[in-house]
Design a protein around this nucleic acid. Structure first.
Length: 443
RNA sequence: UCCUCAGUAGCUCAACGGUAGAGCAUUCGGCUGUUAACCGAAGGGUUGUAGGUUCGAAUCCUACCUGAGGAGCCA
């Protein structure tokens, strides 16, 4: 379906760059987002991955086949289009294309029309069509915010003296001795699991490089079925030699503030598409509210929670705790009993662990968990016994305490929960392209 | 693993014991500025599955399947 007009090859542009080409003849390649017809004028909206742009095709100005091609486009049909860019405040994105020529690449057949229509759909249907759902505006916006946050994480650590030292995905033992691991049936003579944290390796790497981080997917075989859980999720974990709990808190706070400023700087359009209340993000500021576990329990009790000292916070408690604060809440010094074996005890009150969690506002829950690690060999050996962990598997980990042991610590930040909070999404499943959940492994 | 809720047209839903319906999508027709465009027409159904109650079941009962939300646990 090519035009009879002989239009010279114009510049191929992305819709996102339309403002730089006002008045110019350009070519755009993409897919049909939506089409409105009105007799002798049609308004195809093209989606090229970078944005949306309304095109205007007037029958009297175009060769018959070109107009017919555009008029008969079906949703998500692929095509290329040439025309002149013109500022148009009424149009989405502020620019329109006055069509001169168009060429069909592949027309979506009416026997199998594009399933995701501009009307409402249920979550099951959308998840079954996740590979197509990603073409939608909101999904597009969320994934771009995710990209900004991932890039922001790397930029932050790379510019603060950290070395990226990635940790293995296949690991021979539990990091925390729990039962939430995916077993891999492949390696001979040995059970191997998918990692749930790179932390133990991170500690070794911090002794090699000083300041390190790992960034990759992690896996939890928990039977969790909530809006905050994925079985496969991404986590960034920094670890710092010679750091104490206060430094860990400071770095986590600084990272969070930096990531939010990056998103506000570069992804405001996406936040608008997501209908995120931007003022609430702009209100996040240093210093974050800080409290001890003791104080958090008292605060929760005063707000009506049933929690008793010694118990861990449930989701309701986390939401209640964060209420009334503009910034995430930093809670530290938890009872050692409810924390993992490797936390350094508080010097004054050894029943407390120098662990820290950072709880996001609005019920998004724990976005950071970390703390200061045990650096004393004898104490760590004792903890392994107390937690019934197989010493042999941890010999290499004990080496870190044998060869120039120093105080150190780190934390993990869950990318999807963080993105969900920044985007104000109902569920973390929309923050990752292909979510893996308890009852969802396809597409 | 447990608790709660839901499965009706391709999609979103209505009908709640008495002839299964609407909007969107699709097809055909109309419209030169539409903004999830609009107007007219058409096609489209073993009501998740299997039993049961009843003269009669999408509707009531039982089991199962699938999905969603939550608890515990976690980022």
């Amino acid at each position: 379906m090519s035009s009879e007009l002989n239009i010279e090859s114009p510049a191929r542009i992305n819709v996102a760059d339309a403002s730089k080409h006002a008045g110019e003849l350009v070519e755009i390649r993409g897919w049909l987002y939506n089409l409105r017809k009105s007799g002798k004028i049609v308004f195809p909206i093209i989606r090229d991955g970078s944005g949306l742009m309304q095109c205007v095709a007037v029958k009297s100005n175009l060769p018959e086949p070109v107009f017919e091609t555009l008029k008969n486009l079906t949703q998500e049909s692929s095509f290329t289009i040439k025309g002149t860019v013109r500022a148009e405040p009424r149009a989405i994105g502020g620019y329109e294309l006055d069509v001169a020529d168009a060429q069909l690449v592949q027309r979506v057949s009416e026997e199998h029309p594009y399933p995701i229509t501009p009307k409402d759909h249920g979550i099951e249907f959308l998840m079954d069509h996740r590979h197509l759902w990603l073409r939608s505006r909101r999904q597009h916006a969320a994934i771009r915010v995710r990209h900004e946050i991932v890039k922001g994480i790397r930029d932050y650590f790379d510019s603060h003296g950290f070395v990226l030292v990635d940790t293995p995905i296949f690991t021979p033992a539990a990091c925390e001795g729990s039962t939430t691991l995916f077993e891999v049936d492949y390696f001979e003579d040995e059970k191997v699991y998918l990692t749930q944290s790179g932390q133990l390796y991170n500690e070794a790497n911090a002794m090699a490089f000083g300041k390190v981080y790992c960034f990759g997917p992690t896996f939890r075989a928990e039977k969790s079925k909530t809006r905050r859980h994925l079985t496969e999720f991404w986590m960034v974990e920094p670890e710092i030699a010679f750091a104490d709990l206060e430094e860990i808190k400071r770095v986590a706070e600084e990272l969070i503030l930096y990531l939010i400023s990056r998103v506000l700087e570069n992804r405001k359009e996406e936040l608008k598409v997501l209908e995120r209340d931007i003022a609430k993000l702009e209100a996040v500021h240093a210093p974050f509210p800080r409290m001890s576990y003791d104080e958090a329990v008292k605060l929760l009790q005063s707000r009506g929670s049933e929690i008793q000292w010694g118990g861990d916070f449930g989701n309701a408690d986390e939401t209640l705790l964060a209420q009334g604060f503009e910034s995430p809440v930093i809670v530290d010094r938890y009872p050692a009993e409810i924390k993992a074996f490797y936390f350094q005890p508080d010097e004054q009150r050894p029943e407390l662990a120098l662990g820290v969690d950072i709880i996001a506002p609005d019920g998004y829950g724990e976005i950071v968990g970390g703390g200061q690690r045990i650096h004393d060999l004898a104490l760590l050996e004792q903890r392994l016994v107390e937690h019934n962990l197989p010493r042999e598997a941890f010999e290499w980990y004990l080496d870190i305490r044998r060869f120039g042991s120093v105080p150190h610590g780190g934390f993990g930040l869950g990318v999807e929960r963080f993105v969900a909070w920044v985007c104000n999404l109902e569920h973390v499943r929309e923050t990752i392209p292909y979510p893996r959940m308890l009852y969802r492994t396809r597409p």
